[in-house]
């Protein structure tokens, strides 16, 4: 968990100005914060709690509940490997192993240069394309371990 000061405090005030300062805005504000900082920094959560007049415990509860939020800094590109039943059967395991080997990190971790984060997801609803790997926002169907290097090369776009 990071306690470093947030990089750009202006982004937060901009986000907060867009929503009513009340509890119902919480999730939208957190989504925008996540988009702006690529994770939910601790000090930003404290400021969000103050600005929306929501107890910090509640903000933390929401921030840890949703899989879409991360409390640790993430890579610029998120690589999601579908490990749903169909993808699992068609070799998601080997794909994940190859990704972990090439990026030298485990699932859920981020490369040192903050380039990539590997995540596993349970099902992306694209079973016909199994196995599926999503690099940034690009979906790769019928993915093969041999193509992993190429996928990482072209999926460097900033997203999320």
């Amino acid at each position: 968990m990071s306690t470093e000061a947030c990089v750009d405090p202006a982004a937060l005030s901009d986000i907060l100005s867009r929503y009513p300062a009340a509890e119902p805005s919480l999730i939208q504000v957190l989504q925008d914060v996540h988009r702006a900082y690529n994770y939910l920094p601790c000090d930003v959560l404290v400021k969000v709690a103050e600005a929306l007049d929501v107890p910090l415990a509640k903000v933390f509860s929401v921030g840890t509940f949703y899989k879409a939020f991360s409390l640790v800094p993430q890579g610029r590109t998120i690589v999601r490997v579908c490990t749903g039943t169909a993808c699992h059967i068609r070799g998601a395991g080997q794909l994940l192993e190859e990704l972990e080997r090439q990026l030298d990190i485990k699932a859920g971790e981020t490369t040192k240069d903050m380039g990539f984060t590997i995540k596993t997801v349970n099902c992306v609803g694209a079973c016909a394309m199994a196995p599926v790997v999503i690099v940034g926002e690009k979906y790769h169907g019928a993915a093969k371990p041999a193509k992993v290097g190429k996928m990482l090369g072209q999926g460097g776009g900033h997203e999320n």
Binding site: M1, A57, K58
Partner: peptide, 26 residues
């Protein structure tokens, strides 16, 4: 009216904890 603790995470990892697992300011 304090709300110093809350449930954190979800599923099998769900637990009751203060924010950031540190001494709760509230």
């Amino acid at each position: 009216g304090v709300s110093a603790i809350s449930t954190v995470d979800r599923g099998i990892g769900k637990q009751v904890a203060p924010p950031f697992h540190q001494a709760p300011p509230d």
